[in-house]
């Protein structure tokens, strides 16, 4: 074996030592995470109740929290200020020309409210509500949407699953492959596709640079 070939062999040996676990098929550089550690990270709440924290709250309690911590954006009754989201109302509008997609009219699950509030609200001070506050605010939002009638109904991990939202059955999984089958086609027209071309909807305002005021609604 020549000197340089030996050098190459040594180099390969060195690399395989450095790579170590790769030879076993796994790098295994993740550390095991303990249940206690994970509990601090996992705040998801599912429709079947998995993830619901221990706690209790009523709409009456929630109203107080909502008025001090939420109403400045969402309005006193969840009607939404400026471009902030509307949280209540809109029942029966989903087939109308101006559908109003709120918790009561559109959202499928009450767990979504709690999961979202727990992750993201109050906006600017996320993850600051206690579990009791979470139940109370959720109860108030449900009351604003006429889903909970009794302001003293105790919402907690035991009663939560009794709450159903009206539009739960209003969703289905992506079916474009079948419902929009007409968009898969081999006969796309190449000439004489239209007898006349009607150009519609020339808008007059040329708004070249969007400014803050013409920005999207806050989602």
């Amino acid at each position: 074996m020549s000197k340089s070939a030996k050098a190459v062999c040594t180099l390969i040996a060195a690399i395989s030592i450095l790579a170590g676990p790769a030879t076993a098929g796994k790098l295994g550089l993740g550390q095991s995470a303990t249940p206690v550690e994970i509990a601090a990270w996992d705040i998801d709440i599912r429709p079947d109740g998995q993830g619901l924290p221990k706690g209790n709250g009523t709409a009456a309690q929630g109203e107080e929290i909502f008025q001090t911590r939420c109403a400045m954006c969402h309005g006193e009754f969840g009607e939404g200020k400026d471009k902030w989201p509307v949280l209540a109302g809109g029942a029966g509008t989903l087939k109308e020309d101006r559908p109003d997609k709120t918790i009561g009219s559109y959202w499928p699950y009450a767990s979504t409210i709690m999961d979202y509030v727990r992750h993201a609200m109050p906006f600017g001070n996320a993850q600051s509500l206690t579990n009791d506050d979470l139940y109370a605010v959720t109860a108030y939002l449900l009351q604003l949407n006429d889903i909970i009638k009794d302001p003293n109904f105790a919402l907690n991990e035991k009663t939560f699953l009794s709450v159903k939202l009206p539009n739960e059955g209003g969703f289905y999984e992506d079916d474009r492959d079948t419902s929009e089958k007409q968009f898969w086609r081999k006969d796309a027209c190449m000439k004489d596709c239209k007898k006349s071309v009607e150009v519609t909807g020339h808008a007059s305002v040329v708004d070249v640079t969007p400014d803050g005021k013409s920005g999207p609604k806050v989602d």
Binding site: D44, R46, Y106, T112, D115
Partner: peptide, 10 residues
């Protein structure tokens, strides 16, 4: 099952 978060429902 999916968590049914806000950004896959609302």
């Amino acid at each position: 099952q999916p968590v049914m978060a806000r950004n896959e429902t609302a």
